[in-house]
Amino acid sequence: MTGPKRVPAMTPNDAKRPLQLNDQGRLRHFLSLDGLSRELLTEILDTADSFLEVGTRAVKKVPLLRGRTVCNVFFENSTRTRTTFEMAAQRLSADVITLNVSTSSTSKGETLFDTLRNLEAMAADMFVIRHADSGAAHFIAEHVCPDVAVINGGDGRHAHPTQGMLDMLTIRRHKGGFENLSVAIVGDILHSRVARSDMLALRALGCPDIRVIGPKTLLPMGLEQYGVRVFHDLDEGLRDVDVVIMLRLQRERMQGGLLPSQGEFYRLYGLSTARLARARPDAIVMHPGPINRGVEIESAVADGAQSVILNQVTYGIAVRMAVLSMAMSGQTAQRQLNSESEEQI
């Protein structure tokens, strides 16, 4: 046989198991937290804990992905997610390239499909995809490059699974677990992929009280299926919670008539010192960033003793290291299984 053999995009296995797991049930792509077991999420958190320790060493690098190429393909701008993915890959000793596609070939008319085919031909072992359209990462994993590990770095309103997991690591490290926690997610839930990933993760990890707080216009239909309690009043919703997750109010939403004004939103849903006093005294405040001071959160709260917003960034590197190494390992194992079954035929 000459040249690499292309594995067909739809193998018979795809119907029987979720796309992101390999035949052994291990992570192969990381697209969404939907359908992932508590055991697998816990394994990600445990692995991330170990990588957190690597970040405190003199040499902050381990040779796990040496010789592998991780390609960050960002169709949508993002500084924090992009740089922490780059740093995570570098700390694993992988080679990293980052493409801001929004500023490159697509503006010359190349399709998503062709861009990725080109990158695949450059022998990338892993893609981190950020895209404004929901389902982009899933589409790529299913149809473009099934034998390259695909990590979702945020797709439209759908999912931001690494952010979800870094939020879980933050909660576990500060609160010890999920069993007796009340967690409130506040703000623009409708447009938030972070909120979706957080709700799925909290539920899977056994958090008994998940609250969602926001104006009716910024809450999606069918929230109940996530097993959450919905509040429209911030004071009521924050009562005795252990964790407050604030979401960014995307200024561009203001044009859609969903909100009367920025000032009105802050008055009703902004997290101020007085508002935070409704939560437990040891409650932590989280935010995926970038924060809009005075829009969804008061500066005194964002910089206050209860804020763990910057810790989240540090944990984000460890979580991304865990996901990158686990997916690469699962993908490699799957390739081996495929070649073994080919030999048997």
Binding site: R26, T47, S50, L52, L64
Partner: peptide, 23 residues
């Protein structure tokens, strides 16, 4: 020491599922 991140058989056997932090 947990040497899982330094093993040379990562490509063959993958990441050990229970890696503990080195200290």
């Amino acid at each position: 020491l947990d040497v899982s991140f330094y093993r040379d058989d990562f490509t063959q056997s993958g990441l050990h599922p229970q890696v503990r932090p080195s200290a």
